[in-house]
Simulated assay, not measured.
Amino acid sequence: MKILVTGANGQLGSELRNLVKNHPQDDFSFVTREEVPLDDLAKINQILDQYNPDLVINAGAYTAVDKAESEPELADMVNHLAVAKIADWVKIHDAKLIHISTDYVFQGNSSVALTESEKTNPINVYGLTKQKGEQAIVKSGADAVIIRTAWVYSIYGSNFVKTMIRLMTERNEISVISDQIGSPTYAHDLASAIMTIAHSEKWNSGIYHYSNEGQISWYDFAVAIREIANLDCEINPIPTEQYPTPAKRPKYSLLDKTKIKDTFAVEIPKWEESLRVMVGKL
């Protein structure tokens, strides 16, 4: 199988690259933002024609949530219009697509884990552009698996875990939001799930949810990072109102993973286990 991965240098792209050795039967190509600028729509078809993949794993995205509020056109170009182009190519060439979306397509006013059929209603520009990307894939009729994920972290790139470790090393005291609830995703686990789906004998297109098991706040996450990294820093829980950001965040975006587990027999580790593994690698 010829597999093309976009966003090669991102957290997920880097973790996918690490799994190539486990799949010698596949022909992988990894393309970076420079090689496939997703804000250059004319170039997307050229690149896809050049590689002519059987499967596209679209791990590239505009993910600067706060910056998107002041760059809505660019965010829309990358997260929506480019995705539409990829989906159309996949449909025309009878290929498959695995596309990564986000929990931020939800409003965040639920109190139970969100299933794939829950109504989307994003409250920030980033979430809106990702919602439009999902809708474009569905409209195209492409044979696609859309995976919504949340709070992604990895040994690669910049993310909450690495930021917390840095801040707790530099400071005696920090404050972290305690009233936004969800579950983090170790990019290595998500990459493994993607490979399972890519090679599944019962490929079922549609929307799926994936994050690590468990339910926590950002504050809980920070406390766990401190304990596992063996750091000495006081962490104060604060409400969202005390930490204003350009983009609103959903208060509750815990994802229900029943569908992906039942359909593809994906095993999902608990968030604490995965955090220990990641911090150990650092």
Rank of each mutant, 00 (worst) to 15 (best):
H23T: 11
T169N: 00
I268F: 05
L48T: 07
A247L: 06
D66Q: 08
S205Y: 10
D40I: 09
A229W: 00
K91R: 15
D88K: 14
A8N: 07
N172G: 15
K132C: 06
S178C: 05
V105W: 02
S192H: 00
Y156F: 03
A75G: 05
P24M: 14
P239Y: 07
L97Y: 12
K21P: 03
A229P: 04
G182S: 14
W89L: 03
I194L: 13
I165N: 04
V56Q: 14
T263Y: 08
V56Y: 14
N124D: 08
Y219S: 06
V152F: 05
M77G: 07
A95T: 10
A8E: 04
I177Q: 07
L114Y: 00
A42G: 10
I86K: 05
I225K: 01
P184L: 05
G7A: 08
T163G: 09
S117C: 01
Y243I: 02
G214S: 14
L114T: 00
E273S: 10
S175T: 09
S192G: 02
S154W: 10
Y62P: 01
Q11P: 08
S117L: 06
D66L: 06
Y186D: 04
N230E: 08
K85A: 11
G214L: 15
N212R: 09
W203S: 09
S200D: 13
W218M: 06
S29E: 13
H23Y: 15
V5C: 12
I165Y: 03
A75W: 02
Y186T: 07
L231T: 03
R148Y: 10
A229D: 01
R148G: 10
K259P: 03
P250H: 08
I177S: 05
A150G: 10
N159Q: 06
S175V: 07
S158H: 12
L97Q: 14
